[in-house]
Every structure is written in structure tokens, then in C-alpha cells.
């Protein structure tokens, strides 16, 4: 419940506004109208820049990105998972946490804590002081939140995307380093082309996203090619809810991938 002081403040507030305030219209109305016009103008300007600098072709990007990319195709797996910018902080947060131990901290834990803190703010901060310089905890907390959100959003926005065309050129190196068989090499090519490296790193290439582990020595875990192929086909069956299912690659391709992964022991069987 509110205490006497708080009630007295609000009573004074009402009196002050009544006796010495100014009418909403036209004073505040003027400011609000100008601001609203600015908002609509900015939106129209953004729409114009977006449209007039981009082209009709899918993926033909202008200053503010393309109008649309290729039509959705569950069959193609060479994708770069990328949310809208205001989810970048969450997206980048998942680079910090690793599957399977701590990824839930990034997906659920931290957002939930942040939300609870936001909801609880007026109940934790009960002092009546409103000047920010005399609210050190609030000031430091706000600066930390702004800084971390800003950095995470910036990092998410500028995170390097792993390109299939660049990764394919690395396959020869991988063959050398890991001593891959003929089938393993085919699997490696598939691995480079299928967008695996949008989330997984391999021998220093690719980008680590969504908590996906490095796969350079996945073969050292002792899993067979068949087991690995089954995992890739449907990770959810093995309790991995984050990784999408790749059953659409087909049995044969999955086996090649499985072979490649099983041969990737990180020990270098080759020269």
C-alpha cells in the first residue's frame, strides 16, 4: 500500500496541475502533432529508400535490404538464420551459450530474468527520488542494460555470415588435415554447401550460432557414420530441439555427411 508521503505527493500534484497547469490542447497537442508528423515522415522516407534502391529480383538488395529473398523452400538447407534486427541481441546471446548444457540460459533464462526485472522495477524501486543523478543504482543499471543491448545488437548485426561458396574452397584443406576418404570428401562438400556452417564451426571456418558446437573433432566421440547420419536427419529425436531436421537431404547424402563427420577426428589421419 502507498504510504502517507506518497499520497500527499499525489494530492499536491493534482492541486498543482489544477491551479498552475496548462490545458492539453493546444499546448501539448502542438508538440504531439509535430512529433507524429515526424514519425509518419520517417516511416514514409524509410519505405521510399527501401523500395527505390532495391530491385524486383529476389535478393536484389538496396541500402535497406532486398524487397524479399527467394521463395521459402524447406528443401534447400543453405540458409542463414537471421531474425529481424530487434532480436539480434537474443540471437547473439546464443553465441555465448553452448549446446546442450547452457543454451537454455540464452533462449529462456536471460530473457525471462530480464522480463521479471522489468515487471518488478516499480516494486523494487520504492524511493520517491526522481532525479536520475540521485538514483545511482538505477543510473548504473540503465547504463549497463543500454550498453549490453547495444553491443549485442551491434555484434549480431555485424556478425560475419559464413558463405557456402567460400567454405567449399576449404574442402581440399580439410581432406588433407583430417585424412578424409573419397566418401568423406563428398560429405565434406555437402557439409560446406548445405549451410551447416551458418551455425557450426569446422577447423576455424564457419560461424558459431545458436549454441551449435564446433565439429572439427566430432568423430572422436566414437559415434558411427550411421549414428551421426540419423542425428542429422532428425535432431529432435535425440533431444536437440534447436537444430532443424535435415531428413530432406535424402538417405544417400545423409550417409555421406555421417561418414565425413565420423572421419573428422581432429587427429589428422592424412599426411
Amino acid at each position: 500500500m502507498a504510504n502517507e508521503q506518497e499520497r500527499a505527493y499525489f494530492k499536491r500534484y493534482k492541486e498543482d496541475v489544477e491551479t498552475r497547469g496548462k490545458p492539453f490542447h493546444p499546448w501539448a497537442m502542438f508538440h504531439d502533432t509535430v512529433m507524429s508528423l515526424v514519425v509518419v515522415s520517417v516511416i514514409v522516407a524509410l519505405a521510399c529508400v527501401w523500395y527505390f534502391t532495391s530491385g524486383e529480383e529476389a535478393g536484389e538488395s538496396g541500402i535497406l535490404g532486398p524487397r524479399y529473398t527467394e521463395e521459402a523452400d524447406p528443401g534447400t538447407t543453405s540458409f542463414i538464420p537471421r531474425p529481424d534486427w530487434y532480436f539480434f541481441f537474443l540471437f547473439y546471446l546464443l553465441r555465448i551459450f553452448k549446446w546442450p548444457e547452457s543454451v537454455v540460459l540464452g533462449t529462456v533464462g536471460i530473457p525471462t530474468i530480464a522480463l521479471i526485472l522489468l515487471f518488478a522495477l516499480p516494486f523494487m524501486d520504492r524511493r520517491r527520488e526522481r532525479r536520475i543523478v540521485r538514483r545511482p543504482v538505477a543510473l548504473v543499471g540503465a547504463l549497463l542494460v543500454i550498453a549490453s543491448m547495444g553491443i549485442l545488437t551491434y555484434k549480431g548485426a555485424t556478425a560475419e555470415e559464413s558463405l557456402a561458396s567460400e567454405n567449399v574452397e576449404l574442402v581440399d584443406e580439410w581432406v588433407q588435415e583430417q585424412g578424409l576418404s573419397e566418401e568423406g570428401e563428398q560429405g565434406a562438400t555437402l557439409f560446406a554447401q548445405s549451410g551447416c556452417q551458418s551455425c557450426h564451426t569446422y577447423l576455424g571456418s564457419g560461424s558459431a550460432n545458436l549454441g551449435a558446437p564446433d565439429l572439427s573433432d566430432i568423430g572422436a566421440s566414437g559415434q558411427s557414420a550411421e549414428e551421426l547420419a540419423a542425428y542429422v536427419a532428425n535432431p529432435a529425436e535425440f533431444g536437440n530441439q534447436v537444430m532443424p531436421a535435415y531428413a530432406s537431404l535424402g538417405e544417400e547424402n545423409l550417409m555421406l555427411l555421417g561418414t565425413f563427420l565420423a572421419e573428422s577426428t581432429g587427429e589428422g589421419g592424412g599426411e
Binding site: A58, Y68, T69, E70, E71, A72, D73, P74, T76, F79, I80, P81, R82, P83, D84, F87, L210, Q241, V242, M243, P244
Partner: peptide, 13 residues
């Protein structure tokens, strides 16, 4: 489109 589809795959996962 592809961006939409795969972002949602990941989001739902």
C-alpha cells in the same frame, strides 16, 4: 521467403 522461413524455423526451435 527464405529469410522469413528459416528465421522462423530457428525461432520456433
Amino acid at each position: 521467403d527464405q529469410t522469413a522461413y528459416w528465421a522462423t524455423v530457428v525461432g520456433i526451435n
